[in-house]
Amino acid sequence: MSAQALSGITITKNGTITFANTCSTSDLLIEYLQGETTEAILLTRVACIQLLSRRRESPGDFLLRLTYLAEHATYDGAQLIVFPAYTAFAYLTLAYPEAQLYFGPGLAQGIRRIWPSYGASNFNEFLDFFKGLARKHRTYIVPGTMLTPTGNGVTNTSYLISPAGTTIGTQQQTHLNRDERGSGFVNGDDLQVFATPLGNLGFAICEDAWYPEVVRILTLKGAQIIIAPIAVPKPYSKWHQVRGMWQNIQQNQVFGIESCLTGFLGGVEFEGRSTIYATCEMTPGDTGVLAQAKAAHMEDVFTAGLDFIKLGETIRRFDIFSQFNVPLYKQWFPHLYREYPPH
């Protein structure tokens, strides 16, 4: 664990709870192991929002719903709240239904067309709303993703907002499927890891979750919590989800927060079962799941504690990274990718 990366809540013998934002969990762990403190180190608590997108709803009601969902999460002690992909796009479509924004050919062009007149201001309004929520609840918030113009298309971009209400950073989706390309999406070419007192955070947005290179690179860069704002068209497939974030978490020994969009948006119906992941060894029933939405088609809020001490123990028992065959990878990467498809 990074020396300054982590913090959580500590609880003293007399039951006083303190937030350890100024003291890293690693420091506490060392003190704890050395017997210099009797404080039990608890958890970084994170919340996953499974948002139901509705075809008809006033923008005000939509924001009210988001407020309620965020408050629900903070009542459960969440220090980080993650909303699903396209949350901002949902707000845009509700605020400007006349723009008729639908996934498919013409989406990027449509967004680019309305951006100067009201797209940009709508998006700023949306971000300001979340910055306010973050300040009010003193939590980190990932307000899902937004489709923003770039070059000839749009990027699907996520934002990380601090408890002070500032934007810490952004991450663009780096891998696109055929439908996304058809809608004019353009991919980003880099992956960032954000050091926060909660842990080092990285993003795997939508299709990125199905390319193992993404979470591998993020983890090699030091990410400890992978945030995955997701939106997958129905029907929901448990196994499709397992081959995405679930397996990424297992093969990299990190935590994951997969927040799924459900309902109708842009002419598509989405389903997904949001999940907070850890390695099998750390979860009840060995499932790799710390907490999960009750169903794939409804709104839900849930939280889970991320126990970095247990994660450290898991890795010390068997560090997957210790058995990398680096000479093999050096022999073939990255040139094999350039030569794809093989002839």
Binding site: H175, L220, P334
Partner: peptide
């Protein structure tokens, strides 16, 4: 599969 070769070139191996 739509690989992001530019991304991999930055980091792998």
């Amino acid at each position: 599969l739509n690989f992001n070769v530019r991304l991999y070139e930055k980091y792998l191996p």
